[in-house]
Structure formats: structure tokens, C-alpha cells
Amino acid sequence: MAEKIRVLLAKPGLDGHDRGVKVVAAALRDAGMEVIYTGLRQTPEQIVTAAIQEDVDVVGVSILSGAHMTLFPAIVDLLRQRGGGDKLIFGGGIIPDDDIAALEKAGVSKLFTPGASTVEIIDWVTRAVAAKKNDEKLL
């Protein structure tokens, strides 16, 4: 039995609906992944705690509120501080190209803009997780 890819989907900030996240959640599930959705208005603290406790491979963050330049770095930094630096972070939202470059430099692995299809997202997650090397020792 192949291992399941585990993904946390989170939606920080105060902007309204989570339709987009739910579509992505369903698509990743149908692609055979285990998807943990933590709901709206999550703080970076809550997102990072969930990512660590659930030992996910990937954290997907949706930000529509325009606060991406503060929220993404906050999540990346906190995750690293708390020992979860090996987890990949991807994001989605309306994000200008310059910001995308800056965020990818800051440690966000991949950003999807609103046109992205779920197939692209599934594909990226699958490949990125497969490429991750795992050198931790159990005993």
C-alpha cells in the first residue's frame, strides 16, 4: 500500500468565503490524498500547530484579502521556528507577479493564481512531495 500524501488546507485572514479551498480539497481527496481542512479565519499560529500535529507533507494556504505579503512570511517563519521547515508551502490568491517572486524567495514553494486548474495543483503537489528527500532517522 502506497503512503498517502497528507495536505493541510488553510484560509487565514478575514476574507469571506471558502468555496475555492473546498474545491481544491475535494480534488486532492479524489486524487487519493488525505486532506485536512481547518476552516476560515485561522491565525498563522493555528495553521502551523495543525501542520505539525497532523504531520502533513504540504500546507496549502488561500489568501484573497491582499494580506499575502504579511501572512505567508509569518507562516513560513513560524513553521521553521517550530521545527516544521521540511513541510512544503503552496498558496493561492490574487497575487501580483512581483510579490510572487518575493514570496517564492521567502520560502513559499509555489503560488497559484486564480486561473489555475485543480489538475495543475494535484500535479504540483504529487511531484513536489515525491521530490522531497527524507533523511530522518527513526531510532
Binding site: 498517502k4 481527496r29 488525505e34 486532506v35 485536512i36 481542512y37 476552516g39 500547530t49 495543525a50 497532523e54
Partner: peptide
């Protein structure tokens, strides 16, 4: 597909994580 939507955590938002409560979802 073997996939799962693990949604219980969503209903556990009042659990005080700052008190060290550990939550783990399983398929």
C-alpha cells in the same frame, strides 16, 4: 481512491491548543 477529507478538526476550534492539546486526524 484511498483519499479522505479529514474534517473533524474543523469542528474543534475551541480546543485550547495553547494548553498543549494535541489533535491528530486519521483516515
Amino acid at each position: 481512491t484511498g483519499g479522505a477529507l479529514l474534517g473533524d478538526r474543523l469542528r474543534m476550534q475551541d480546543i485550547p491548543l495553547d494548553k498543549g492539546v494535541f489533535i491528530r486526524s486519521m483516515g
